[in-house]
Write a protein that binds this DNA or RNA. Sequence first.
DNA 1: CGATAACTTGACGGCGGTCAAGCGGCGTGG
DNA 2: CCACGCCGCTTGACCGCCGTCAAGTTATCG
Lengths: 238, 238
Amino acid sequence: MVTAPIMSACETCVVRNRAICSALDTQEINALNQLGRRRAVTAGEPLIWEDDDSLLVANVIEGVLKLTTSTEDGREQIVGVAYPSDFIGRPFGHTTKASVVALTDARVCVFARSDFDRFAKEHPELEHKLLERTLAELDRTRSWMMLLGRKTAAEKIATFLLEMSDRLSDNVGCQVFPGPRPRFTLPFSRQQVADVLGLTIETVSRQFTRLKSEGVIELPSRREVEIIDRAALVGQAG
Amino acid sequence: MVTAPIMSACETCVVRNRAICSALDTQEINALNQLGRRRAVTAGEPLIWEDDDSLLVANVIEGVLKLTTSTEDGREQIVGVAYPSDFIGRPFGHTTKASVVALTDARVCVFARSDFDRFAKEHPELEHKLLERTLAELDRTRSWMMLLGRKTAAEKIATFLLEMSDRLSDNVGCQVFPGPRPRFTLPFSRQQVADVLGLTIETVSRQFTRLKSEGVIELPSRREVEIIDRAALVGQAG
DNA sequence: CGATAACTTGACGGCGGTCAAGCGGCGTGG
DNA sequence: CCACGCCGCTTGACCGCCGTCAAGTTATCG
């Protein structure tokens, strides 16, 4: 029986060239591959718990996950959303303050934090990628603070739909006509949209209905959104 | 006349061992010193404008600065606060989406972004420090999202006062009795407190008055706060 | 086809925003 | 030293957005 050449799963990984792994050459990525393992997470399944010892870090290969914090009395706020090629977890010696739960079925590439920390310190190029990613995430998070602190429900919904349109079309890869597609499937339930925007489920529902009745969007099914009048959304986004 | 030994200003800098510079040895910091310059910023003076080309990055030596974003119609949200030893600005090729304005008279150590970027890539230890700092800032920002999205005005104010108490006592350096001091001077006006918490100035004022009348805090002057009943604040922080 | 969860819709009320007036501390100038 | 004016803050009255509570409707799955 002929054995295939030794080759890590990384080399055929769909996010090989987009995740922080892109900083590594073949030899390095094989070394990293030894430390990690692939793992499937089904929709709704948690990957990391709030106030966990944060033993895990991971790259998202496929699917969408939410990062949340909660108050003791059960109020929840989604503080981040991780898409394919995103990095999740908290390296370098701190406990996470966010839970990570899969929104869709997902595949991730997980590492023990201690292993990852050690490997990263020995590979500055990897750390540089991680730094760029973290800086970008901080930018995004800060613009979301503006939304949470100062925008009305209508503005929040409009901004959210525009962002989803951008984000989800990014993940399509190559489109014949570039730019956000007018139609997409939300990875969020109504309650989760509310948790992203700091609203209640009823307010989210009412705003969706309003936009539909104004002819700005169409709602083919519960999870699908089609943007009919993008300019109107931009106008309402504040 | 006897000349003093050549020595960069960095070596006597008060944040030498706390800022990201602590990653560098004497020779390296002298090289970095060649690239930067010290600058005084008076209270209210801007250092970086929103949507700027982000030509500057800086370390805070002394004072407090705010990072803000605004909507076109003038609503403002403070998305971050920089204290001594904090790093400000956006390295690695992106425009900032936040303005930076001094809240108190401040001294910073500024670099052209391009110079800093180049230097950082050649000094992985510096990048590592910057990464740790950015990760910590992201954690803080995310917990602030919880506050903005899900907490009531009373909870916001209580959380804010506790955070200020922690932050400002940190900067005292060595205290005989460790732990947050019960009294401090706010670097914020009422309007700025409102901009941090996503409230209006009137609501902030009313909440302060309420806490005072409940005997939880004392307000010796407009900018000073004394925490009388810390447990009550913790209880109200949600 | 029924059960269950997710969502929508309606009625109502309260938190916090808006508008407006009053207060007070501080700096300036007489 | 005191009078004045300004600016930041406080307080009050009112109201609207959005949260709460409840009922009705639609998808989904056994």
